[in-house]
Amino acid sequence: MNILYCGDSKMADGLVISALSLRRQTHAPLNIYVLTANIKGGERDFNALPVAVTNLLEGELQKLNPDSHVYRYDMTAQFYDDEPIANMATLFTPYCMLRLYADLIPGLPDRLLYLDTDVIASQDPTNFYNEDMTGHEIVGVLDYYGRWFFHSRLRVFDYLNSGVLLLNMPLIKETRLFAKARAMCRDVKMFMPDQSALNKLARTKAIAPRRFNDQRRRHEDTVFQHFTTSFRFWPWLHTVTVKPWEVSRVHDELHLTMYDDVLNEYDRLRPALAARKQ
């Protein structure tokens, strides 16, 4: 199973939790590809994910399956060769756009499952991973909130959340989807740059059922739970953002305990992880 993540040193905790959750749900070898970069963002500077973190993660994955590997790619040069200038100061970090450079890496697998680092595998994702992608550049789930406000075709609901995406890399290269999306991020300021560009420019995208990217809450059939910001209406209208590495908040505010096996593993690794993030 080929998995793609993107981010900086601050995403190390989420990367480890997400990858460990995959290891819990499948015994198949995991080939994890991590895109990172050193990015100067004006008032915000971002440091690349250290090699020591990916080495630590690979060692943990190989305890269950020696054929699992973690590959780290420093994309600093590629990023600045085609910098998303119009969207460097959005609410989202520039790393949200880093996946759009994956087509520039020689030798990446034809099929990739992209995951945000705040996504946890709740069940075995093998069937989703093996979905037929013939003729589709990307496969994803409707954005829980955005589907009501955005669409790019005649179909009423077609706006995908980009936190869980199956990527058909040969077709993406053929249609130049990522290259066009990079150009759009460079020239057009957008609220959610990479997600908006992919939805706008994808010629062919398939819509998967909600259970493959549950953004609101976990259900019995949830395969991937995505810890996004959500709205709550009681006792007043407010937003709630809880990330998997905020373990006490996962328990106290979301009342989730079914991930404790993974979170306990993360807690065991936390001291070593903290030392390697520096």
Rank of each mutant, 00 (worst) to 15 (best):
I3S: 11
L4M: 11
Y5K: 06
G7H: 12
A12P: 13
V16N: 01
I17D: 00
S18R: 05
A19L: 04
L20C: 11
L20G: 04
L22C: 05
R24H: 09
T26E: 03
Y33K: 12
L35N: 04
L35T: 04
A37T: 09
A37I: 04
A37P: 06
N38L: 00
E43L: 10
T54N: 00
N55C: 01
L57C: 00
L61W: 00
D67S: 14
H69Q: 14
Y73G: 01
I85R: 15
N87Q: 04
M88H: 03
M88P: 03
A89F: 12
T90L: 01
L91N: 05
T93H: 06
M97D: 02
L104P: 05
L108K: 09
P109M: 07
D110M: 05
L113H: 14
A121E: 05
N127Y: 05
F128Y: 15
Y129T: 13
N130K: 10
D132Y: 04
G135K: 05
E137M: 10
I138D: 11
V139H: 05
G140Y: 08
Y145T: 14
G146F: 14
G146I: 07
R147D: 04
W148S: 02
F149P: 00
H151F: 03
H151Q: 07
R155V: 07
R155C: 05
V156P: 05
N161S: 14
V164Y: 01
L165E: 04
L167R: 06
N168G: 09
N168M: 06
P170Y: 06
L171N: 01
I172D: 02
T175V: 03
T175M: 02
L177K: 00
L177Y: 07
F178Y: 10
A179F: 08
A181C: 15
R182V: 08
R186W: 02
D187A: 12
D187C: 09
V188I: 10
V188E: 15
V188L: 06
F191C: 09
F191D: 12
D194L: 06
D194Q: 13
D194Y: 12
Q195H: 05
S196H: 12
L198W: 08
K200D: 08
K200L: 15
A202S: 14
T204R: 10
A208P: 02
R210E: 15
R211E: 08
N213R: 01
D214K: 09
D214R: 14
R217S: 11
R217K: 07
D221P: 07
D221C: 09
T222P: 06
F224N: 15
F227H: 13
S230M: 11
F233S: 10
L237R: 10
T239N: 07
V240P: 00
T241H: 15
V242N: 08
K243Y: 13
W245P: 04
S248H: 12
S248Y: 06
S248D: 13
E253N: 12
H255Y: 08
L256F: 07
Y259W: 12
Y259H: 13
D261G: 08
P271E: 03
L273T: 00
L273F: 02
A274G: 11
A274H: 13
R276F: 01
K277E: 01
Q278H: 09
Q278S: 13
